[in-house]
Amino acid sequence: MEKYFQIVTSTIRNMMKLITTILLIFTSCVAFGQQITEIAIIPDKPDKVIINGKEEQAYELPDVLPEYPGGINGIMSFLSANLVYPPNAAEQSIQGRVLVQFVVDTKGNVSNVEIREGVDPSLDAEALRVVKLLNGWTPGKMKGKPVNVWYTLPISFKLQDETPQIEEEWDAVPIDSVGYQEMMDLGLKAQSENNFPHATAYFKAAFHINPYSIDPLERIIKMNNANQKSADNYAIYEFGVDELSRWNRLNGTGMSAIFPMEWLAEQMQSLDAEDQYPQFALMWTYLQAPSAKMRTKANVLLDKLIPICKEKQMWDQYGHMMSLKTFFLTTEDDIISLFEPNAEYLAKSPQGSGALVILSRVYAESKGDSVKAAKYMKMAEDADPERVELPKWLE
């Protein structure tokens, strides 16, 4: 289950390992405002770090830099789904840049995370929390071998009303129109020869190249229906959702992704009204699209999915959806009224711990109720004991 961006990228690399700075700036909308985030590689880090209890070499300038899935768009999507502007900081108009440094280790995980320059305890804690979750990188390499690499991630918290408007038309990356047309032509040729398996394969390849066009899938469905293979249609729609989700994850969710995902979700629901998978994929597409209107649609869909997940006792999905609702709750009383009556259900899965942590923070930072703050933090820790950073949020 896996975010309205503006991107400015500037890269400077000196081949003689003098000074390297990669600066990538983008914006990410969340409930209480917008964050402007820069990504940078900054020298002067320790050569040795402790990873899994062992001292290992860490590099500043490897031959190949680590890469997060989807590159910059992937990091954008992750931050948009996970960054939460601390309510107390938003109410007090606290803003500023938090500089977090960390190591991407040889397994692609984040370690040695620490604040290099702080602003405010609540902003510092939120920046640390998100960076510690930023795992799953392709490791950097030196002489063809994976190595530990230092990264510095400045996260600037800035309230929404002081940031520029985001372009609504933003799309991810250019489509390979030549490759797409080649696959379509081959598919049409195979179809004319009544070679339906090959035609299906070519049309699926075309959709893989350009998942913004539903034409290849519609042709497959028509072939299936004409050849008494309509039972295969659901698998084709599922393939479409998977491919479009993959594309969005790797390249960013552009506005052109909205229509095909809506179409796919509608087709799958018509075949199986109880299947929530396409609705989850559609919700993420709405949430990650660069449009306030799409985020409104995401909120509406969340309100539809949450009670369904609760009724079916799909606690992982329930916790995830409820935690995402944080982005749309504008007051602390809204957070309390939604999360507190459902705390026992949130505690049934690690995914619900995020909502419990937010609830704990509201009581600790705004309501001054240390008893309830400790209660809900303990519930969050019990639900997801591996999140060792949670106690720090109360400090």
Rank of each mutant, 00 (worst) to 15 (best):
L329W: 00
W284E: 02
N299Q: 10
K348E: 08
V357Y: 04
G118N: 07
A81S: 13
L305V: 13
R361S: 13
L287E: 11
L61C: 14
A235W: 09
D242L: 09
Y345H: 14
R97D: 08
M283Y: 13
S77Y: 06
F32V: 13
T20Y: 09
G187F: 01
F5T: 09
S370N: 11
P350E: 02
A205N: 10
M261D: 01
A347P: 05
K222P: 05
L123K: 02
E126H: 03
A127N: 01
T330P: 06
E386R: 14
L99N: 03
A292N: 11
P87T: 11
G352A: 14
V357T: 10
N148D: 12
D44I: 11
W315E: 00
I36F: 04
D44P: 06
N52A: 12
L83V: 13
E365V: 06
R361V: 08
I39K: 04
T253C: 11
E274Q: 14
F32G: 15
I335Y: 01
K222I: 06
E262Y: 02
F327H: 13
F203Q: 04
N342M: 08
I72A: 07
N88G: 02
L264P: 00
Q165C: 06
L356C: 01
Y286K: 02
E114L: 12
L217G: 05
I214R: 06
D272P: 03
T21Y: 08
P164I: 05
A127E: 00
Y318H: 09
K17P: 05
K348S: 06
M268S: 02
E91C: 11
L264A: 01
P290K: 10
K204R: 15
A292D: 13
W393M: 15
W284H: 07
G144S: 02
D215I: 05
W315L: 03
L186Q: 14
F239P: 05
V119E: 13
P211R: 03
E67S: 15
D303Q: 15
Y4G: 08
Q101H: 09
